[in-house]
Amino acid sequence: MKTRNVARISFPSRSANEAFARGALAAFLSQADPTVNQLADIKTAVSEAVTNCIVHAYPDRSGVVRMTLSLLEGGRVRIVIADSGVGIPDVEKAMEPLYTTGNPDERAGLGFAVMQSFMDRVKVTSQPGRGTRVILEKQLETRE
């Protein structure tokens, strides 16, 4: 599928950048005029993926979060969020609802479940010690 526009952004894994990532995403997607609900869904999924990088990928140090936003022909959005952190030993297990390696009193363990529920496609690849890459895709509704 041909790419109509693309933006690449990288930022340190600081929690203050969660809102920045959502803001940058909203600014990029404004050219595609998404519905309020679709934009909210994508912002939520991106917030989950970026938070995973900050909480899990770099537990003891700051690292870089790379976000690639692509608008494809036909109104499809593809977002890649990648880190060079600790990686996930068992991706299938990590994607189970309620599974978390964070503080169970404050983390719901719903990050991947939210991404899967709010997006059309979620693909996660990870190498322990090398990092994790999350691909999120959603088809935007066309407005008549």
Binding site: R22, A40, K43, T44, S47, E48, T51, D105, E106, R107, A108, L110, G111, V114
Partner: peptide, 16 residues
């Protein structure tokens, strides 16, 4: 105006 699953964690933590 916006909430991700961190808000769910906030609720569950307070409920406990």
């Amino acid at each position: 105006s916006f909430m991700d699953s961190s808000g769910v964690g906030l609720i569950l933590g307070r409920a406990r």
